[in-house]
Design a protein around this nucleic acid. Structure first.
Lengths: 169, 169
DNA sequence: GTAACAATCTTTACAGTGTAAAGATTTGCG
DNA sequence: CGCAAATCTTTACACTGTAAAGATTGTTAC
């Protein structure tokens, strides 16, 4: 039997990841510092060696999430940066991300900025991009609404509506 | 010396009003049921005779606020329902309201619906109204942002920008 | 190596929170 | 009047964030 060592070794990072899991499991209302600590098998005051208070932990969680968000966006258009397909793939990645992390709708404002910057390879064409984003945002809001579940394949809906928008212009 | 009567007489309404005051004084984070009860000189469990839980109290506060919000909008355009001025007055009332109640940015979504319905006397002309609203919303967001204070007269800015928008179309 | 120090973790403590349950007081109605 | 319903107080409990002091380990200077 191995004894649990007094020092955890990687607590700061595990607090961030356990925190992200927890807030997506139980929502913002039932999120608490002590639960995150318990999830890491650590006393309830241990987090204070790494974060000044609970807001600082949540802030670090936010940064971590937006990093993974940008990775996902970048990966979704790898190799086709300038293709016409790229903007559609970006939209799908955007929606998918917020379906995986519904509690992070809070961070959608900064997500939006990244999404726009990323989907704007050459200037101009901004009219179409704004229209696209409204749609993406709308679908994401709908699908991540608690109580709403969509049994079909949302990707189908998304692509259909994207094609319709293309014809409009 | 008058003895304080055992029954308050108007507790439900006073809880709602004291709650609105409190949330605008201390913000959402430090808002609590017990403080509202104390503000009404009543024991901390008294609110449970009128509300099932704290969410129900906050909900009632929201309803009360939106009622006052609509009153303010209606009063701002009294007598000039169909004039060209009306839409400008509506915008000013909208901004003013959220400056008086900064903590109620939460309710801005429903406020937006009312604002749109109110500013749409005859159908058509919707392009201009949407553009107007984006501006009103943007200014309201800016002015009610904690940490941002604008020393000048925001009304001046608002009207200038409105006139510019008119010329655009 | 060892002594001193810094980092990390546990324990203990406290004030504040929401809310459930039981008892007190008043109002209203038969 | 008498009894029931409404309203309020008291008490209690589990949970929260966080401050403070002590325990354990890792690191560095000598």
């Amino acid at each position: 039997m191995k004894e649990k060592p007094y020092h955890h070794g990687n607590l700061r990072n595990e607090l961030i990841e356990a925190g992200i899991e927890l807030i997506n499991e139980v929502g913002l209302r039932d999120f608490s510092l002590r639960k995150v600590a318990t999830k890491c098998n650590v006393s309830h005051a241990a987090p204070y060696s790494h974060f000044k208070n609970i807001d600082e932990l949540v802030g670090a969680m936010g940064e971590h999430v937006t990093e993974r968000f940008m990775d996902k966006l970048r990966a979704s258009i790898r190799g086709r940066e300038d293709s016409r397909e790229a903007v559609s793939l970006l939209g799908q990645a955007y929606i998918e991300f917020f379906m995986e992390h519904p509690a992070f709708a809070l961070f959608r404002k900064t997500a939006y900025r990244m999404f726009r910057r990323m989907g704007q390879p050459e200037s101009g064409d901004s009219q179409r991009l704004i229209a696209l984003w409204s749609m993406v945002h709308g679908i994401a809001s709908l699908l991540t609404n608690p109580g709403v579940r969509y049994s079909g394949d949302w990707r189908e809906v998304f692509i259909k509506r994207l094609e319709a928008k293309e014809r409009e212009v």
